[in-house]
Amino acid sequence: MEATVANAVMTHAPTQPTTVDYATLSPAAQDTFDRLMEQADITASATEYEALMTAAIAITGIGRPRYNEIFKCACPCTCPVIFDADDPDAHVIEESGGYNLGRLQCPTCADQHPTPAEQ
Rank of each mutant, 00 (worst) to 15 (best):
Y67E: 09
H91F: 10
I62C: 01
C109K: 01
C106I: 01
N68M: 14
T108S: 15
P27F: 11
G102W: 09
M10V: 04
A74I: 01
M10Y: 05
A46F: 09
A56G: 09
G98K: 07
A51N: 12
C77R: 07
D86L: 10
L36H: 10
E69Q: 10
L36V: 00
A3G: 02
D89I: 04
G63V: 00
P17T: 06
T4I: 12
Y22P: 02
A56E: 04
C109A: 08
T19P: 04
P114H: 11
P17S: 09
Q16I: 00
P14N: 10
P88A: 13
F83H: 04
A8V: 08
A28W: 02
D41C: 03
D89K: 14
L101H: 14
L36R: 06
P116N: 01
A56R: 05
T19G: 00
C79P: 06
A3T: 07
Q112I: 05
I62A: 02
I93P: 00
E95S: 10
M1S: 09
Y49H: 15
R103S: 04
P114D: 10
I59T: 05
P88I: 12
V5C: 03
L36K: 05
A23T: 12
I59Q: 10
Q16N: 02
T4A: 06
Q105Y: 00
P80F: 09
E118R: 14
G102N: 12
D111W: 01
I93N: 04
A40E: 11
Q112S: 09
P80E: 02
Q105K: 01
Y22W: 11
A44M: 12
S26D: 08
C75A: 15
D89L: 10
V81R: 02
P14S: 12
E69R: 08
A117F: 11
N68A: 13
D84G: 04
I42V: 14
P14H: 06
R64K: 15
R103A: 03
T11W: 11
D41H: 07
Q119I: 01
N7T: 06
D41N: 15
A117P: 04
I57W: 00
V9C: 03
V9H: 12
R64D: 14
H113L: 11
V81Q: 07
P114C: 06
T60I: 06
I42Q: 13
V92Y: 00
T43H: 13
H12P: 00
G102H: 08
L25C: 07
P76R: 07
P114R: 10
R66G: 01
E48F: 04
P88L: 13
V81P: 02
N100L: 04
A23Y: 08
A29Q: 13
T32Q: 14
M1V: 03
M1Y: 06
Q112L: 14
A51E: 11
L52E: 02
